[in-house]
Amino acid sequence: MVSTAATEQGTRPWGRRAAIRGPQAGPGETATDAGLIQASLTDPDEFAGLFDRHSDEIHAYASRRLGLDHGHADDVTAETFLVAFRKRHRYDLDRPDARPWLYGIAGNLISGHRRSEVRRLKALARTAGGAETHELHEEERNAERASAAALRPALAAALARLSAAERELLLLVAWADLSYEETAQAMKIPAGTVRSRLHRIRAKLRRHLDLPKETTP
């Protein structure tokens, strides 16, 4: 079992980290992402600061979606920052926090691995499958149902049935903790569209989840 220095420093706890990204940085304060990107226009090496700040988080997101197999998450993370660097001239410097932008790039790269994501979700959907659950007594099964963990196979199946864009939107909100506004920035769509699409996606999920028989082979 390889546990690494990264485990040590810990993947960042989820939730907002507004403290790191203060408003416009004064002298001696931490520069905003926008500040770093702006500096990198003059001194490209500054861009590495963005990697140091966000690569763990982007990697966590990529690996949640793709798993660690085949190094896809590693590739996506590395590529995200290469693409971001090449596109940095087009970054909207009015946005201090670059995470939505990075998530957007990562999301595009992840959709390049769509097939392996879906394959993985389907595998998850099969693993805990029906067999064991059937042996549980009725109350137990109800208790199990209440816990999201036990529903994971069904959830995985439901996720696999969403389109790539739907999955991305849902998981940016649910797994990457982005606000609607940030998700809108990441996906380059209006915030109102995030809201309405999410509504549709939830309806779809509800439908899939209410019919667990359809989702297990």
Partner: peptide, 11 residues
């Protein structure tokens, strides 16, 4: 979905 977020393996 939120609660079923997989553990992120270490980078």
């Amino acid at each position: 979905i939120t609660q079923a977020r997989p553990e992120a393996p270490a980078y």
